[in-house]
Design a protein around this nucleic acid. Structure first.
Lengths: 206, 206
DNA sequence: CCCCGTTGTGAACGTATAATCACAATAGAG
DNA sequence: CTCTATTGTGATTATACGTTCACAACGGGG
């Protein structure tokens, strides 16, 4: 039974993974139960052995996205000590995330939500502000260390960092990858660093 | 006949308007032919007297959105001479646009697009980069006048300005208006201005 | 070995919705 | 007034999709 339970968990992961890839590739609308089932190798109705309904699958995908974003931040923090460099790490990792095809906003904007729209929005909000909170944390540390100007709201700075990524992700998606998000992030970073650092500190990083 | 032609045009406008409002309020998915028809006061099949199919309606809405954005930029330019102030005008107008409920990204991310997805994406791209281009124009002028640092790419600056607006719009939408986008824009503006102006120039504006 | 819970299957249902079509109303041109 | 093009109508079709359900396969614990 422990084995069976584990297998169940595995299947759930498989389904969530498949759903996430489908959303990334073709959007929420095209993420049909049938399509997911096909990818996992079972029949559509089989999905309902593991998920109550489609919304639950979307919740699972949102969880994955949130976890991934969170891991990105943690990895960036582990990588170095300088808060400013950590922020850059977060930025570049998010860019990498986008280039993997994981256009997060695609689901954040789920017009969709056939049944309880509000729950999904709530979940998305939680992930979004969780991410902002984590980044703001870094900003706060940067301020303590005098690396970042202390006359700015950490959350505003965090959102500004996200602001580099989101519109870029939009164009990247609209042009089917025909936009150099990495280059854009690097150029934007210079501007961003200039805005948030103390004037004495000339921003490092290439 | 000239009269008839005019009426046709009027109906098309009515339909596009209704569609735009529906998308703004409930997203692309919920913008059904039936819903649009109800708002205009005709029967669903009547819509097809004025539009070939749903995609064509979406194109019309995209046109409206593009026009509105363009008008925003022009109005901001007319308002004052200082390019930096003009940029702030663009920012605040876009914020107002969002607060009207016109969450533009909602359609840019049209998962939807049942038939020729690519055409819609192309159209959205055109609007997007058109907007960026207009803003970049202002930035260029600011550089000529020495108001804005000349070591930055105007388009990058333009996208950064948009970066203030887009994530804010996302949260605004997710929280059903429960996020002070105006306040956020004002705070972000201070950071933005610091990033793009020459150091000698202390940014004006409250 | 048998039993039962878990997982997968195929058929079916209900619904939402885009799109078509034959027909009616209407209004302006001649 | 009559003819015709335009616009609106109601019925209808086609389709895609989420979801349910009765049943089969299977595997581990008693």
């Amino acid at each position: 039974m422990a084995e069976a339970k584990l297998d169940t968990q595995v299947r759930r992961e498989q389904i969530a993974e498949a759903a996430m890839n489908l959303i990334a590739a073709q959007g929420l609308r095209r993420m049909s139960i049938a399509a997911v089932a096909r990818r996992v190798g079972i029949v559509p109705s089989g999905i309902y052995r593991h998920f109550k309904n489609k919304d639950e699958i979307i919740h699972a995908v949102l969880d994955r996205v949130g976890r991934r974003l969170s891991e990105n931040v943690e990895a960036a923090c582990r990588e170095c000590d300088d808060p400013l460099e950590q922020l850059k790490g977060v930025l570049m990792r998010h860019i990498r995330f986008i280039r993997e095809g994981r256009a997060v906003p695609r689901m954040v904007f789920s017009d969709d939500a056939q049944t309880d729209n509000s729950r999904l929005k709530q979940h998305a909000t939680k992930i979004f502000s969780g991410y902002i909170g984590q980044v703001a944390e870094i900003v706060g540390q940067g301020q303590s260390q005098g690396r970042i100007r202390s006359d700015v709201d950490p959350r505003t700075v965090a959102m500004m960092l996200l602001g580099i990524v989101v519109p870029a992700g939009i164009i990247w998606h609209l042009t089917d990858g025909g936009f150099d998000v990495t280059r854009h992030a690097q150029q934007s970073w210079r501007l961003f660093a200039r805005a948030v650092t103390n004037n004495e500190n000339i921003p490092v990083s290439q």
